[in-house]
Design a protein around this nucleic acid. Structure first.
Length: 360
DNA sequence: GAACCGTGGAT
DNA sequence: TATCCAAGGTT
């Protein structure tokens, strides 16, 4: 039977070919959960250093729950998708305060926690608690779509049901955690998106895509993202040895991270700048734009950002009044170092102002 | 159900 | 350079 061959060949391959990864050494609910959240939409190579730092800084879920949110966000800086960090902290507090520091032990129970969806719940439930639920992620879609020749658009929500049910019939119920990790390892190292290594694949003999030569067409994914262009004019307001920054709010990218006073324009910088009330008020006090940076190009998943930074030396008198209700607060260089900032801001501080604003 | 949310590496 | 996409989740 096709399904049993898939299972046995895959499990045998995993015994000799599994990757050696830090979170596989001594699996427990906390470390498994931590690794899964970090690895959402993130490559192993990028997430691994963060996993090590988080586990060292917060050895237990209670340590993470007791940490200040600002510290957690700062430790997450550079990983992206920052709602993961907020939910990570929220989840830790729930587990610590309402569950006696003990994670739920079931697929259903895990999904009730913030930041844990179907995939992550299945991964933890199978790896830590031996529950036989398939972990449907990008690797699983690819491996299964190719092997079984499934044409369903994986971007459509109904695809999940189809792959989940198929996975449930094939999963090794004796070692569900190994099975799920085997699918992921195969997808990551052999059945790769481009140029899959079919010559060395343990599932080659029964693979539909290999037989048809359709590896490049599977899985089917129709969704195309639209990329919006934005022009960001950052006003770096300085006063003595301090710089004004503000915490970004909900409704846009980089929620809860810190940046400078922002004037967004439809086009690259022009005299629209003068329509900004804060900037206008500052200039009235005698301050002037002292310096500007080259354009920084920064690419997000749905946006292309073009940013320029203008330094303005503000006067002490009247500053509080001008900046009230803007959310802007003054920070020393040392304080800025401890704030969570977008990579764009970090790049500006490091590469352009290095040795001038921040003492390296 | 579709859009949104980051960053970096590979091709 | 442009595109894809990586152990997804939330709204």
């Amino acid at each position: 039977m096709e399904e049993s061959i898939f299972r046995s060949e895959l499990m045998e391959w995993y015994q000799t070919s599994q990757r050696s990864l830090p979170w596989r050494e001594a699996p427990n609910a906390y470390s498994c959960w931590l690794s899964e959240i970090i690895l959402q939409q993130t490559r192993v190579a990028q997430g691994a250093p963060y996993y090590a730092r988080f586990l060292e800084t917060y050895p237990t879920v209670q340590d993470l729950a007791d940490a200040p949110e600002e510290e957690v966000m700062r430790l997450w800086q550079g990983l992206g998708y920052y709602s993961r960090a907020r939910n990570l902290h929220k989840c830790a507090k729930t587990v610590s305060h309402e569950m006696n520091n003990t994670f739920p032990s079931t697929y259903a129970g895990l999904q009730k926690l913030p930041g844990i969806g179907k995939y992550t719940a299945a991964a933890i439930a199978s790896i830590v608690f031996n529950e036989a639920v398939p972990a449907v992620d990008g690797n699983m879609y690819r491996v299964f779509a190719r092997y079984f020749g499934i044409q369903t658009d994986i971007a459509s929500p109904k695809a999940f049901k189809e792959f989940f049910e198929l996975g449930a019939t094939i999963i090794d119920s004796g070692k569900p955690g190994d099975f799920n990790q085997a699918v992921m390892d195969l997808g990551a190292t052999v059945c790769t998106p481009k140029k899959p290594l079919c010559d060395t694949c343990p599932l080659a003999s029964g693979c539909h895509a290999l037989a048809k030569g359709s590896q490049g067409d599977l899985p089917v994914k129709k969704k195309k993202i639209k990329v919006r262009e934005r022009h960001l004019n950052y006003i770096v307001i300085r006063n003595g040895d301090k710089t004004f920054m503000r915490k970004r709010e909900a409704g846009d990218v980089w929620q809860d991270l810190y940046d400078f006073h922002l004037i967004e324009t439809e086009k690259p910088t022009d005299f629209d700048l003068l329509t900004d009330t804060v900037l206008e008020s500052l200039i009235k006090t005698g301050a002037s734009l002292a310096d500007s940076s080259p354009t920084f190009k920064h690419v997000l998943s749905h946006q292309r950002l073009f940013a320029r930074f203008y330094i303005i030396e503000a006067q002490g008198s009247g500053l509080d009044e001008i900046l009230q209700n803007t959310g802007l607060k003054a920070y020393t260089d040392q304080e800025i170092e401890s704030l969570a900032k977008p990579i764009l801001i970090e790049n500006y501080l490091k590469k352009y102002l290095d040795g001038r604003l921040l003492l390296a």
